[in-house]
Design a binder for these strands. Structure first.
Lengths: 238, 238
DNA sequence: TGTACATCAGTGAACGCGCGTTCACTGATGTAC
DNA sequence: TGTACATCAGTGAACGCGCGTTCACTGATGTAC
């Protein structure tokens, strides 16, 4: 009787539960895309599941919990994409690694505008992402940029950056602590420039704020801009 | 009988109307700040006005119309701030003009996070800003940056930028048309870098996305970053 | 100056809608003996 | 292998809430003669 053997691993009930769990996440992503995060509704998801509205509470404690699941899911997915792109480049190809990482960031955002909005758009009213679940996946990308830059510095493949002296207000110490960096302030400064430019360009494109005449090809513009930043930073091609 | 003379200019009824109009805008700004754009509610505003909910329709045709009023109001206020800062600098002080303009942009955003969110955050679900009312005030800031850069070029105060050859995809022609610019593509490229960095840094700060350890002083970080971009662009101090 | 009419700000009730969340319940699935 | 009990996914009704928008109305304000 083969059924009983399967039951020992995962019982049919448990399988159904896992399937429904996954469907809820999928529907959440869909609703995010179609109606936006602030309109995310457990009742609407129940409807799509052909369930009565109260049944969803067997799977998810509250609307806020579902939002948190979606946030973590999106951060992780984005970070996976960026990491994958990064790793496809030979080690020591620092400029190339940074370039493809930023490109992957933009590409994910353009492909998944709703999820990008959840992460980098305005906060969802009435919802506060719990830092303990959200911070780790949310900092993976910027951590990767910092790490790569540090490696480039160690390898002597990047020159001095413009120095701005001792500026107590800028306070890079906590950042260096958080990411276990051993690197000069000037390079943290440089990393933030790269990060801010990446997020800035991506948001302008995804949120449609390039004025009434959006660039015909966002990817080309992005590549030019990021390439320009890497040039000005003094990171030569391999 | 002095009352009759005043009536010829503005009748008491008209004055009351103007006052209520203004209060609706003010309450709209307040609610934006407190509850976010997607929660903006005509009923709630009526309550604060001590009016029955249907009465607001004497002043505003719909919720969407109020949103549009608030968008235009915010764009104009922001652009006024930036323009004022710009004009306080002596002509020909191009670097300084760009610097204070960007700083004014950030300062307005930090002071008015809710209104900044309305303009540069994620779109309000179910609401589409009407381009005919929104485009002009919405492009004033970027137009000012472009104009200043063009003047710097004309005055020979800025060197060549890295050139990226003929890149059909980037399509700067419509931008140059829209802003009546006579300028090389490389400088448009440079202007967009400045613009994207400004918006990127500002959004990261206002939306709290600098990771778990936000910089202690956003203004200092911002000044460093923008100063760095202006350096790398080759725009020397006056 | 006084009267007759027009305008229009504000009322109150109603329509139809959606939401999150709780709770006592049924009945199928799973488990221990 | 069969029975007795425990678990738990899904039900259906309800609570209390908020929203945008319409509509016929009252009564004060404004205007023309």
């Amino acid at each position: 009787v083969p059924q009983e053997q399967r039951q020992q691993e995962t019982t049919p009930r448990a399988q159904a539960r896992a399937r429904t769990q996954e469907r809820i996440l999928e529907l959440g992503r869909e609703h995010l895309a179609r109606y936006g995060a602030s309109a995310l509704s457990l009742r609407a998801i129940a409807r799509d599941l052909d369930l009565v509205s109260s049944a969803v509470y067997r799977y998810v404690a509250s609307r806020d919990e579902l939002l948190t699941l979606l946030v973590v899911d999106a951060y992780s997915d984005l970070a996976d994409c960026v990491t994958e792109a990064h790793e496809a480049v030979a080690t020591e190809g620092f400029r190339e690694q940074l370039m493809v990482s930023c490109q992957a960031f933009r590409r994910w955002a353009v492909t998944e505008p709703a999820r990008y909005t959840l992460l980098y758009g305005s906060p969802v009213p009435g919802y506060q992402a719990p830092a303990d679940q959200t911070t780790e996946p949310g900092t993976r990308v910027v951590a990767l940029l910092l790490k790569t830059l540090q490696q480039a510095v160690s390898a002597g493949r990047i020159g001095d950056q413009p120095s701005y002296g001792d500026l107590p207000g800028a306070g890079f110490a906590p950042i260096k602590d958080e990411f276990a960096l051993d690197i000069d302030d000037q390079y943290v400064h440089t990393a933030i420039l790269l990060w801010a430019t990446t997020v800035g360009l991506t948001s302008l494109e995804v949120f449609g704020q390039f004025g009434s005449e959006p660039p015909t090809d966002g990817a080309v513009l992005f590549d030019l801009q990021i390439g320009g930043v890497l040039d000005r930073i003094g990171l030569p091609a391999a």
